[in-house]
Design a protein around this nucleic acid. Sequence first.
DNA 1: AGCACGCCGACT
DNA 2: GTCGGCGTGCTC
Length: 803
Amino acid sequence: MKVAEVIVDVSAYPIDRPFDYLIPEEMQELIEMGCRVKVPFGPRNVLGFVTEIKDTTEVPVDKIKSLSQLLDITPVLTTEMLKLAKWLKTETICYEIDALQVMLPSALRAKYEKQVSLLTDVEQLPILLQPYFQRATKVNYKAFEKDGMLHDLKRAVKDKQLVIENIVKQKGNIKEIRKVKINESIETLQKILGNISKRARKQQQLLQWMMNHVGEVFDLQDILTDTNTSQAVLQAVIEYGGAEFVQEEVYRDPFSKEVKKTISLNLTDEQENALQKITNSIKNRISETFLLHGITGSGKTEVYLQAIEQCLLEGKEAIVLVPEISLTPQMTDRFRSRFGELVAVMHSGLSVGEKYDEWRKIHEGKVKVVVGARSAVFAPFRNVGIFILDEEHESTYKQEDAPRYHARDVAIWRSEYYQCPVILGSATPSLESFARAKKNVYTLLTLKERALKQSLPTVHVVDMRNELKNGNRSMFSESLVEAIRTRLEKKEQMVLFLNRRGYSSFVMCRDCGTVVQCENCDISLTYHRSNEKLKCHYCGYEQRVPKTCPQCQSDHIRYFGTGTQKVEEELTKLFPEAKVLRMDVDTTKTKGSHEEILEAFGKGHADILLGTQMIAKGLDFPNITLVGVLSADTSLHLPDFRSAEKTFQLLTQVSGRAGRHQLPGEVIIQTYTPEHYAIELAKEQQYEPFYEREMWMRHQAGYPPYYYLALVQISHEDIMLASEYAQKTVDFLRSNLSFNVSIIGPTASSISRVQNRYRYQCLIKYKVEPNLIETFIQLIKLYRSDWIKKGILLTVDLNPSSI
DNA sequence: AGCACGCCGACT
DNA sequence: GTCGGCGTGCTC
């Protein structure tokens, strides 16, 4: 007897364990752990993953069922990943199935459809149902749902005229193109040539050519142009058996352009020293985590590239993570130009099919290097030699929904499995990582000087309160206007940075002060000029701009705040001659628009690049000599303990965009609070003093890295129930956790209502609490077995990226 | 989660 | 007597 343990594709608490299935005879040779299978589960069919193969089972014979289909001949998950999923499950408190799914491209996930099949003759069906089965005996269930025919359908099912079947489909497919394969035997071709009509001159010509290419495979079009024949001629030859159409699997090409090959650059002593330590750990198979702290422009990427080169020499693979796709074009170009065809990319900008193809290149061993966003940390290599996280401090490395994993933790776990190094690179490391480096948990590598010996840009901080006193009410200070003007005259480029969060434009009534709010969420709607609409950034709700105030009917209603659109308008008013490129969520909606805008700017098609945080990092153009930060305060006053850290990082990052090449750079930071340490120290680009200062603050307030955090969120449509269960949660935690743990809350979340649900949260701070995970599991059990029925939604996020 | 089953009130 | 509403329980 052969039995498979299967984790089925159902995210629910009582299902979160393996189920045993008998393996049918015909699958026994092929099946392996990590394969996907189709299984009957209760009344339906679902997809599942084989996690174990064994010879016995405890399940009584009358209960056990058999696998219905094997979906993979080669497993899609390695045994490493099955182990990793178990770890993720306990580490982030998620369902095992969610942990497994997150490692695969969405193309491999199941799509469930219900299908209605005919059991009798069409004529015997009720008249109303007959039209559906005129052409086919199987019809999609949705068709009946749409027409409101479910009653009639149900009756026909009862009468055994129809059956409803659950079918499982794969979401994405391998792209195939039709090619032409020339017959392998020259004799056959000769025979055909002898048999065809003497008048068929084109066919003879084609056959002659084919005899020089026996057994080869060509694109249809290539044959036609090469032999100067038409498709009709080829068709005839194919009918005689001279060639055949074949389907060939192809990879979709996510790279829009070619890149030039580059070779290793000479390293500075600092870089060389860092590289030595990393390669030492690759060669000696040591799982060691390095924190590569290098100021902007110090050439971290070159160190990555050469470390990867070492890796490839050792016959191993490399996984490189970058925070966002905005970074990817320039970053991936650098990797592709060094490693060419050996690079796969993985980011959210790719289509489902493209992601699947990139994944397959990795899975099939066609590539050795992957450059990608967070989920690329699961790239299915089998012999990884290095993990690299660039811009290690970025919060995008933490997934916000289940499984709530941090890419850094996964990388470190995998590096222990492969006995290889992890490189965390940043100009402004997260406090957590820097603290670990100081405690020698990570090995600190420092790059203090810029690779091309350029000086750091001069940074000026402008106190906007003085501007206001002097009667300047615009969003541009006098010094910024002056700086822009001189750059325009000198034909140099500049970047203007606007942190949109919290300050996007809203619509307010000047008489009663009412701000137009979202119907579903307690948040003001954002004004979008492009389509004259108000939009909610949380739930996507849209409405037209009202002509009169909804509260007091006054028509003194108008726009406030500074969105990028408004800045652009003012900018063109002040400098009509300047060419401005705007980069924000609106202008980068379509695929590839990111690259287009950056490329246009790189080619000098504009003087000013204006954008939100997405332009803060990565871009590296020689002609940028001015960076302006319109309002440094916005991120400083967010209700989050990391706001100072975030602001410091952001300012340092944007400042690093200026003067990266020959021309010296200047940075102008506008703020209402110039005395804040995050701004003062960012001005001087002083990481360590900032670190010391911020660590002291964290120590005082009991935040990471001194304490660990866990965030429990509770929401319900009814505010009373939400608050009641939030209190219950806190009571439960208080009675189960020790006194060393501080439990803060319940408090209403900063945006108290989202999508018509009232949100509460409580924050848990702890140092060591062996009981913690178990207590959360108990809390979740309580929630899943009881509270969930009342409509409560509860989530636990260990080490949240923001609160 | 998603589905069947079964109990109960409303309506032909 | 039948239909369909929703609470309950199970899934190898």
